[in-house]
């Protein structure tokens, strides 16, 4: 039967860790987010808010004009991809099923369990700490977009800029949102390095361990 081999066939559904839309938007987002962060660092360097600059070799754009061109090109990729993900997340039930509810007491218990290596990692099911981090980074991305719009268009989108405390404060919000996202990335990548079996499903959609005879990494 044709649809037995499809991922949504009854037997195979349990194998699918990440649906196709989530995988595509994850990697497009990773690419766009890195472009935004690295070009953003170069833009920050043109007029640092705090007493430091990012090393130029780590930045994208070669000069302010190049960095701005990258930033305002990649923002479309980030925004459109993010919109697809959020619409999918609500419409498919992905958000409700996988991220909800987030109870502080569960987060605390799971966090303690993780630190004592007692937390089991089940592919395709998020523990409370993961739920909080993933929902949190979606929130930070939204904060980066809203604060970014308010410093890009402080006249045309004045009400938005006002809500964010004015032009100068919105710049700080934009910086803090970026910092939070970079902090998430560090933890996220460190955890994938610790549990490499989580990496393959984000590409293939399936847990490598679920297939007999295949080696797990």
């Amino acid at each position: 039967m044709a649809d037995m081999s499809m991922s949504h066939g009854s037997g195979a559904a349990a194998d699918e860790v990440h649906p196709l839309v989530v995988r595509i938007t994850h990697w497009v987002n990773a690419f766009a987010m890195i472009l935004m962060i690295l070009s953003g660092w170069r833009i920050y360097n043109a007029s640092p808010i705090f007493g430091f600059r990012f090393p130029d070799q780590l930045t994208l754009g070669a000069w302010l004009g190049g960095a701005l061109a990258w930033h305002f090109a990649a923002m479309w990729l980030l925004a459109i991809n993010g919109l697809v993900y959020v619409v999918y997340g609500f419409a498919s039930g992905h958000f409700k099923r996988d991220f909800w509810p987030i109870r502080p007491v569960d987060v605390w218990n799971d966090f303690r369990a993780a630190l004592t290596f007692k937390l089991a990692h089940r592919l395709g099911t998020y523990n409370s700490v993961q739920k909080l981090l993933y929902a949190g980074v979606v929130f930070l991305a939204a904060a980066a977009i809203v604060s970014g719009l308010s410093i890009w268009k402080p006249v045309q989108f004045y009400p938005l800029t006002w809500l964010l405390g004015g032009y100068d404060f919105a710049r700080i919000v934009h910086f803090l949102a970026m910092s939070g996202i970079v902090g998430f990335l560090v933890v996220h990548i460190a955890l994938v390095a610790l549990v490499p079996s989580t990496f393959v499903p984000m590409i293939t959609g399936r847990a490598a361990a679920a297939h007999e005879g295949e080696t797990t990494r």
């Binding site: 690295l38 780590l58 070669a62 000069w63 190049g66 960095a67 061109a69 090109a73």
Partner: peptide, 28 residues
């Protein structure tokens, strides 16, 4: 940081000789 930093060589830094990425950025 992957191949990304290699892209920094082509970021509208030589308007006289635009490469492919320059043309994409200009278009955007």
């Amino acid at each position: 940081l992957g191949a990304l930093t290699m892209l920094t060589g082509c970021s509208l830094d030589n308007p006289a000789a635009p490469d492919f990425i320059d043309r994409v950025l200009k278009g955007m």
